[in-house]
Simulated scan of single mutants.
Amino acid sequence: MTTIEARLDKIESRIEIEELVSKYAQSFDRHDRDMLRGLWFEDSVLNLGSNFGEPFKGIDNIMAAAETLWAKTPKMHHWMANSIVVIDGETARAETALDCFVIDSEDGPTQVGGLYTDHFERREGVWKIKLREFDLHYWAPVSGWSAAAGADAEPAKA
């Protein structure tokens, strides 16, 4: 049996880790550079797989990759789900499913699915992403799609 403090720490850590996963999605969807920058350590790595280039090492390279992705897919809507989180002291690992709809500059409306595998560390009491890897399951352009209503809908033509 573990202590109440240890159990509470694990619960709080899980909440912080799940928030990092959500903030990653929200920061990309909103183009929120400050939020995105705050998720990483200086030596963190973002590896989106061979479809998106070499692993991006360090915050500056991660931020440069984000700018490239935003230029290619200016509209993104991430749904992160089914996280499995394992915490081991000052480190943790999570797997989270991705369902993402994007408007790509080349392919147009596209449905994206895959799995993120994250490695987190807690340094000086703060959890951040140490390594994020993405396994692309599909990139599926959707023909004939258009938003009929909402913030991203095109105005009606007269």
Rank of each mutant, 00 (worst) to 15 (best):
R7Y: 03
D9K: 09
K10T: 04
I11S: 02
S13M: 09
S13K: 08
E16F: 02
I17M: 13
I17K: 12
E19F: 12
E19Q: 13
L20K: 11
L20D: 08
K23N: 13
A25K: 05
F28Y: 12
R30S: 13
R33C: 10
M35E: 12
L36N: 07
G38F: 11
E42V: 08
E42D: 09
N47C: 14
S50Y: 01
N51S: 02
E54N: 15
E54R: 15
P55R: 11
P55S: 10
F56P: 00
F56Y: 15
G58Q: 05
I59W: 08
A65K: 10
A66T: 05
A66R: 07
E67A: 14
E67S: 09
E67I: 09
A71Q: 09
K72Y: 01
T73P: 03
K75W: 14
M76T: 01
M80Y: 06
M80F: 09
A81V: 03
N82D: 01
I84P: 00
I84F: 05
V85F: 06
I87S: 01
D88Q: 04
E90S: 06
E90V: 04
R93V: 12
R93I: 12
A94E: 01
T96D: 00
A97N: 01
D99P: 00
D99A: 14
C100D: 07
S105V: 03
S105N: 04
E106F: 00
G108I: 01
P109S: 12
P109A: 14
P109Y: 11
G114D: 03
L115F: 03
Y116Q: 08
T117M: 14
D118F: 15
H119A: 08
F120P: 02
E121L: 10
R123N: 06
G125E: 06
I129Q: 13
L131E: 10
R132E: 11
R132I: 12
R132K: 14
L136W: 04
H137T: 03
H137V: 06
A140T: 06
A140S: 09
P141C: 12
P141A: 13
S143L: 13
S143D: 08
S143Q: 10
S143P: 02
S146K: 15
A147P: 01
A148S: 06
A151V: 07
D152F: 15
D152W: 15
D152R: 14
K157Q: 13
K157C: 11
K157S: 14
A158F: 12
A158Q: 08
A158D: 07
